Simulated scan of single mutants.
Amino acid sequence: MTAASPRIPSPLLLGVGLMLVAFNLRPALTTVGPLLAAIRMGTGLGTTGAAVLTMLPVLFLGIASVLGPRVSRWIGPDRGILLASAVVAAGLSLRALGGLVPLFAGACVAALGIGLAGVLIPGLVKREFPGQAGLMTGLYTMTLCLGAAAGAGLTVPLQDLFGGSWALALAAWALPAVLGTLAWAPFARPSRAPVAARSEVTRPVVWRSPLAWQVTGFMGLQSSLAYIMFGWVPLILHDRGLSAVDAGFVAALMSVGQAPAALLVPTFAARLRDQRGAALAIIGLTLATYLLVVFGPLWLVVPATLGHGFGLGGCFGLGLTIIVLRVRDAAGAAALSAMAQGVGYTIASLGPLGFGLAHEIGGGWVLPSTLFCALSLGAAAFSLGAGRNRQV
Rank of each mutant, 00 (worst) to 15 (best):
T2D: 14
V16A: 14
L20F: 09
V21A: 01
R26F: 06
A28P: 00
T31M: 08
V32Y: 03
P34A: 10
L35A: 08
A38W: 09
I39L: 13
T43H: 12
T54Y: 05
L56V: 08
I63E: 01
A64C: 13
A64R: 01
S65A: 15
L67I: 14
G68N: 01
S72W: 00
S72V: 03
S72I: 00
R73S: 12
P77Y: 05
R79W: 01
I81C: 03
A84H: 00
S85I: 00
A89N: 07
A90T: 09
L94Y: 02
R95E: 07
L97G: 10
G99T: 05
V101D: 11
L103F: 10
P122G: 03
R127V: 09
E128H: 12
L135H: 05
T137L: 07
T141P: 06
C145H: 09
L154S: 14
L158G: 06
D160I: 11
L161G: 13
S165N: 07
A169M: 10
L182E: 05
W184R: 00
V195M: 11
R198G: 15
P204G: 05
V205H: 12
V206L: 08
W207M: 14
G217E: 01
S223Y: 05
S224F: 10
M229L: 15
M229K: 08
H238N: 14
L242K: 06
F249W: 13
F249M: 13
V250D: 04
V250L: 09
L253P: 03
A259N: 01
P266F: 01
R271G: 12
A278R: 04
A288C: 10
Y290M: 13
V293A: 10
V294Y: 03
T305A: 14
G309I: 02
F316Y: 09
G317L: 06
G342V: 00
A348Y: 01
G351V: 04
F355Y: 15
L357V: 15
A358S: 15
W365A: 06
A380N: 08
A380I: 09
A386R: 00
